[in-house]
Design a protein around this nucleic acid. Structure first.
Lengths: 162, 162
DNA sequence: CTGTTATCTTACCCACCGGTAAGATAAAAC
DNA sequence: GTTTTATCTTACCGGTGGGTAAGATAACAG
């Protein structure tokens, strides 16, 4: 908290004027990250065509989010560091996102753009690959955010086709 | 450290008789986990056939490791919590595993069992999906470790075929 | 001009936790 | 049987870090 306050050029009590406690800040960062993802989900649900196209668009956008600060929070924040109330909120967000991804996959299976598969396992494996991005992505690294997003969208949807 | 000592039914100084410090314990757990994975890699390199079969075997075994305690350590231990020496060791292990997975993929491309692809991105996406398992796996959950391993091996190799 | 609220500071507290000092006990070495 | 080494205990320490008490300053309302 000292470091955060320093970074903002204020004192710690000034920080505590705006937030109740540390968890409050963490959760707010998490909410911002989830907000980015939910925006994506809504856009996709409206605009895209087949289930496969929706999944592909989701992967592309989610990968991009994982390369920005608040996106990283969604992956980096550990449930074990939270009190039960905050943990419940976090789980609700996670479940919601998971449900929607599974929904896209299901749509794909129904419209024939995705091969028959277990939606749960498939969603978990896509989410895992995407979440993991923020563990190795470096802003000044060999791979740009755009490259990663494009390549992941291609690679991960490859296996879904009938 | 108090909790760890309690769990072992000894006092904290007894714990410090066997380990230099906290990082030493963390690193030792990490080494055990990495050991499990390296065993797998060696077995696979010896026994299996095509590149694709090696990758498939790797996924199956790695998924299984992620569901056991010391396997989890490999994913859960955060580089940021270590001193530079330990971090260097950890990175060396990671790089080694990554190199070998990429090697299997490369073999597959060369022997024609895997379609042309970017080995780096492919390896990262497989590793991500696998590492993520320990974030949602529960011993008493709906999916058994065996089921997860089998399904992941199938799902993740689906997209690699030419 | 006065009372009120929002904003922010200095100075401080204290629980927690990684780690240690000093020594007791038990086993092994010779 | 004495010395040495491995094992383990009680009692303690000090830094860290999340959080607060009390009050100053600035903005605003009436």
């Amino acid at each position: 908290m000292n470091d955060v306050a320093d970074r903002l050029n204020i004192t710690k009590p000034a920080l505590y004027h705006y937030f109740d406690n540390k968890e409050d800040i963490l959760l707010e960062c998490y909410r911002l990250g989830v907000g980015l993802i939910e925006e994506i989900l809504n856009e996709i649900a409206d605009h895209c065509g087949t289930g496969l196209q929706k999944v592909e668009a989701f992967i592309h956008s989610y990968a991009t989010v994982m390369t920005v600060n608040f996106g990283r929070c969604v992956m980096r924040l550990d449930e074990g560091d939270l009190t039960s109330g905050a943990r419940a909120e976090m789980r609700a967000y996670k479940r919601k996102i998971d449900r929607r991804l599974r929904g896209f996959i299901q749509e794909g299976i129904e419209d024939g753009s995705i091969a028959q598969c277990d939606t749960k396992i498939t969603a978990f494996s896509i989410a895992g690959a995407l979440n993991w991005i923020c563990m190795w992505y470096e802003p000044d690294g060999a791979l740009s955010a755009e490259e990663i997003a494009t390549q992941f969208a291609r690679t991960l949807t490859q296996g879904l086709r009938p």
